[in-house]
Amino acid sequence: MRLAIFADIHANKQAFTACLDDARARGTDRIILLGDFVGYGADPDWVVETAMALVADGALAVAGNHDRAVGTPSETMTAEAQAAIEWTRGRLGAAQRRFLAELPLTAEDDDRLYIHAEASQPARWRYVRETADAARSLAANPAQLSFCGHIHQPALYSMSMAGKMTQFVPPAIPGADVPVQLLHGRQWLAVMGSVGQPRDGNPAAAFAVYDTDQREITYCRVPYDVEAAAAAIRANGLPPRLADRLFEGR
C-alpha cells in the first residue's frame, strides 16, 4: 500500500490541492493527515471540509496545536499565529470545529505511529529540531516507524539497535525525490515538511509518500500558486508577514 502523508496544511488551499493532485499522480492508496489543518492561511473552511471528506473516505487524521487552539483559546502561540486563529474561529462552522476538536493526538496502524509534534509528550507540542529530540520521541513509543510534522522542515531520523542516532535532510533539489528504504532493525522518525507553509528555504509545498511493501519513503516537493495563496491572506486582512513568508519558504 502507498500512503500519502500530509502535515501542516495551514489553510493553504492552493498548496493542498497541488499536493493532493501530485499524490494521486504517484498512485497512492491511502491518505494520512498529520494535523495543523488551519492557522496562517486564508482557506480554513475549504481545507477542513476537504479533510472531513477524506476522513469519511478512509483517511487517517490526528490533531495539531493550531487545530486544538481553535477550541481552546488558552493555547500559547506567537502573535501572528494568534491573530490567524482568532480570524479562523469566525470562519468555521460547528461541524468543522467539532471535527477539529475531536481529532485524536495520535493514531497507530500496523508498525506505524502518526503524531503531529513528537511522541514523548504529544500535548506539549515539542519540536523535533535535532537528534536528541528525535531520540526522545522514539524512546517514548516502541513503534518502528513514527511520522510527524510541526517543525515545517523535512528530516529523517533513525535509531539503531545500539541506540545510535542518524539524521538526514532530504535534498530540496528538483528530481532528488529518491525513495529511501526504512531498513528493518532500526526505529525511524520521518518528519514531514509543511504543505501550506514550508520553512526550509524552499517555497514548494512538501509531503511524503510511504510504500508499506517496499518500506520506502519518498519526500516530495510540489510547486503551487504561491501568488494566489498570498493574495488570499492579504485580502482577508491577516498579518501580511504570513503572505510574504510563503514566497521565501521561511
Binding site: T131, L156, S158, S160, K164, M165, T166, Q167, F168, P170, P171, A176, V178, V180
Partner: peptide, 11 residues
C-alpha cells in the same frame, strides 16, 4: 550517498 541517510555519521 548524498541523497540517502548516512547511517555511519554518528555511529
Amino acid at each position: 550517498h548524498a541523497q540517502l541517510p548516512d547511517l555511519l555519521q554518528e555511529e
